[in-house]
Structures are given as structure tokens and as C-alpha cells.
Amino acid sequence: MSELRFNELRHEHVAYAIHRQERTFLPSREHCPLCPTKSGCPPTEIPRETFEIAVFDNRFPAFEQPHGAAEVVVYTDAHDASFGTLAPGRAEALMWVWRHRYAELGARADVDYVFIFENRGVEVGVTLHHPHGQIYGYPFLPPVPALELAADARLDGCAPCTLLARELQDGRRVLFESERVVAYVPHAARWPYEAHVVVREHRPSLLDCDAEDLRALAHGLQTLVRGYDALFARPFPYVMAVHQAPTAPPVGRGHLHVELYPPLRTAKKLKYPAGSEQGAGTFISDVLPEESAAELREAIARAG
């Protein structure tokens, strides 16, 4: 059972989930709990010999009913795959899974915000290598989406719509665009190779997307992640964060977009959130977004 405390000084919640200290930590592939269950062997988390996409309640939840949710989303039964190497149809199916989980978790009275994310790489704290993401159902509106909603008021409308228009007009940081989605390094990126994939039309959530939107979103995300892997010719760690409308008031506010925060600043060097970032809340970056956007465009072209 987790405990939620409120930090008055920072005006933010902190969740204490001390049972998570015992969670499985970088097991060998023979003991991967996300692999399919082999005949004659003890069951893994998924008691089938094959599967496409599986979702289950996290065995070590940060949030759980009746105070939220924590789910694991396993992208494939192939241990050595990654989001970027999924077949396009599987990536598209994953968007439908996200949409379904958003609807079901968001319908719960104890979930105010459905947060879909992926941590990739030990550099961002991954404890299981099998390709997977997670979903937290927060029993409150977390600070980052709250800040984004507050930006709406400052920009006199949908902030992501306004910022997308600015990026398209400027053009220097745009990585690629299609009829449905645009990817760019934001004007004030915190991370050296941070990028956002934004649904071009104003869609508050995955539920507002049609099949073409979901297909384009999957394609856009895979294009970016493959470009990341090509950038330094190595698996590129990142945090992938899906931002969309809260499922409690203000319901319907927000604009679906996916933010990726890679911690690498070179092939072998990490950007650490340190004194200025943690103590003062101001990121210091070694790379200009226009320069990293140019590098990423080349890498995306190389990745094909």
C-alpha cells in the first residue's frame, strides 16, 4: 500500500511505495517476467506461450485501487524487440491499447489523470529489458499536465496548438511532418535531444483520435525512435511521456502530444539533472535545439 503525502513547500504530491524496493531488478532473460510462459516452466506474468500485447496490474504498484492505478503494457512477446522495431501494425495496435486503457482507467472515480509512459534504458532506471511501457492512473492532476493546462490561459487558447503553429512557422526545429502529426525539438527543450510528437489537429485525448490519427501517431513515434537509435548507432535511452486531457475536471482540456526526454548529450555522456536543474528548477543545456534538430533530421534520414 502506497502513502501519498503533500509537499507544501513545492506544492506537489510525493508517493511512498516502499514495497517497490523489492521489485524485480534486471533479471536474466531466462527469468524475464514479461516473456511468454514456456511449456513446463513456472508461469511468468503472462501465462500464454505466445501473445501480441498484454496489460496487467503492476505487481509492485506506485498507485492502486481505490487510490489510482499502475499497469504494465508489454508490447510484444519478443524479448529483444523495442518500440522502434515493432512491426508498423503492432505499433498501431499499441495506440489502440493506449486508447482503451485511457478510457477504462479514466472512467474510474479514483483516477483523475491517465499517464502513459515508457522508460527505455538503464540510464533512465529501467529494471526490465523486455519492451514495455507503463500506465499510472493518478488520483490527482500531476504538476506537469497542470502546468500545461495553465499555459493555455497565458497563451489565450490551446498552448500546444499555439506552440505547434510557432514551430511550423519557424521551421528550424521541425524534424518531420505529415498530414496528421508533426515532430519537433521544442524552442526551449530541456534535454539535448528532447523531441515532441504532436497531433496536428486539436485532439484532447486518444479518444478524440480516429484510426488515421492513431496510425500516424504510431508511425511518427517509431520514426523518431528509430532516428534516435541511428543518431549514435546505439540503443537510445529515453523517457516517453504521453500528455493528454485529464479524466476529471477540467475534462476535455489538453492536446494530445508525446514528449521524449533522452538523457544522452553525446554517445557516451549523460546529461544529469543536477544543482541548477534540481535545486533551482532551471535546466542548463549544452546543445542548441536548432543544432540537435539538424542532427536528428540526418539520423532520421539514415534510419530510413
Binding site: 481505490p66 479514466g106 472512467a107 474510474r108 472515480a109
Partner: peptide, 11 residues
Amino acid sequence: DQPQRRGRGDT
């Protein structure tokens, strides 16, 4: 088109 909320604890 929004999630229809149910009672706390229902599944």
C-alpha cells in the same frame, strides 16, 4: 466521447 466515470472501487 469521454470516459464515463463509475463509483470508486467498482471494476
